[in-house]
Simulated assay, not measured.
Amino acid sequence: MHSRRDFLQKLTATALSFPLVSGVSTEVFAHSKEVHQNEKVLKVAIMGLGSYANRVADAMKDCKRAKITGVISGTPSKVKDWQTRFNIPDKNCYNYDNFDAIKNNPDIDAVYIITPNAQHHPQTLRVAAAGKHVICEKPMSINAKEGKEMIEACKKAEVHLLIGYRMHFEANTLEIVRMQREGELGKIRFFQGLSGFRIGDPTQWRLNRELAGGGAMMDIGIYAINGSRYMIGEDPFWVTAQEVKTDPVKFKEGVDETITFQLGFPSGAIASCLSTYNMNYLDKFFLNGDNGFAEMQPSTGYGPIRSWTNKGRLDLPHVTHQTTQMEEMAAIILDGKKAVIPVDGEEGWKDMVIIDAIFESLRTGNKVEIKYA
Rank of each mutant, 00 (worst) to 15 (best):
S17F: 05
F18E: 14
V21T: 13
V24A: 08
H31T: 14
H36Y: 10
K43W: 09
V44Y: 02
V44S: 00
I46T: 09
G50I: 04
V56A: 11
V56R: 05
M60A: 08
D62H: 06
K64P: 01
R65I: 01
G74A: 12
P76C: 10
W82G: 12
D90A: 15
K91W: 00
K91A: 07
N104L: 05
N105H: 01
T115Q: 08
N117L: 03
R126T: 12
P139C: 07
P139Y: 05
M140W: 02
I142G: 02
K145Q: 15
K145S: 11
K145N: 14
G147I: 12
G147Q: 03
E152A: 12
A153R: 01
K156Q: 11
K156W: 00
L161R: 04
I163M: 00
I176C: 00
V177P: 00
R178A: 12
E184A: 10
G186E: 01
K187F: 00
Q192W: 07
L194T: 10
R198L: 02
W205F: 14
N208Y: 02
N208V: 15
R209S: 14
L211M: 15
G215E: 04
G215Y: 00
M217D: 02
M217G: 03
M218D: 03
G221P: 03
I222C: 05
S228G: 13
S228R: 09
M231H: 14
E234G: 03
P236G: 04
W238V: 14
T240E: 14
E257R: 01
L263S: 12
G264K: 12
P266C: 03
S267W: 00
A269D: 06
I270V: 15
A271E: 10
C273P: 06
Y277W: 06
F286S: 06
G292D: 00
E295N: 10
P298F: 13
P298N: 02
G301E: 04
G301D: 13
G301H: 10
Y302G: 07
S307P: 03
P317L: 04
H318N: 13
M326P: 02
E327H: 09
E328Q: 15
A331Y: 01
L334E: 07
D335P: 01
D344E: 07
E346L: 08
D351R: 13
M352F: 04
I354T: 09
I355W: 00
F359I: 11
S361M: 06
